[in-house]
Amino acid sequence: MNCEDFMTTINVNRLSSGLKLQENVELKQHLEACPKCQTEYDEMLQTVAVLESLRNPDPPPDLALKIQKQIAKEHRRSRLAFFASPLARLLAALKFNPHPALVNCTAMVFYLVLTVFLVKLTFFSEPDNSVHVLSPTKTVWRSAHVVTTSWATIRGIPVPMEESEQVTAEEMLIQER
């Protein structure tokens, strides 16, 4: 066994688990014959002993409480978010647990599409005659149109020609404004 073989065979697990070299005669013989490897081995043993003496520092006494408060805050927020996102609620009910980022992205796309649809419906939809006939404004205009004829009536009451002309004039003023 040469020095390179020795160093690859010696590993930290062997040093740390207390196996040392007793069980391997070949390693032991090389160590006795090679002062360089003996020094290297002793230094590694010493380093391992120093590291094994490491102890964890104690946490600050109020750390757990701080974390618990933060978690309670986050829990409240997540419950609000849960109500705000029906998609996440649906996925949770189906026991389908995708990554939160995926849920957030899907919810965002869902709300974006919904917003575009609502905006289009509200501001960019074509006027529909059947709807406008039912609206009060157009009803007025219908009455304004019909007053030009001698047989026009409003709500079934006959309208004299003079009165219907006055109404028409008022309506025209409103239109101009």
Binding site: L54, P59, K66
Partner: peptide, 27 residues
């Protein structure tokens, strides 16, 4: 929390950063 704080303290070498990292970890 004690184990995670110990880990963070050894990884970051700074108790203040370790406290922050522990809180972030649990969150």
């Amino acid at each position: 929390h004690a184990k995670i704080y110990g880990l963070a303290c050894r990884m970051l070498g700074n108790p203040d950063d370790a406290s922050d990292a522990t809180q972030e970890t649990f969150l």
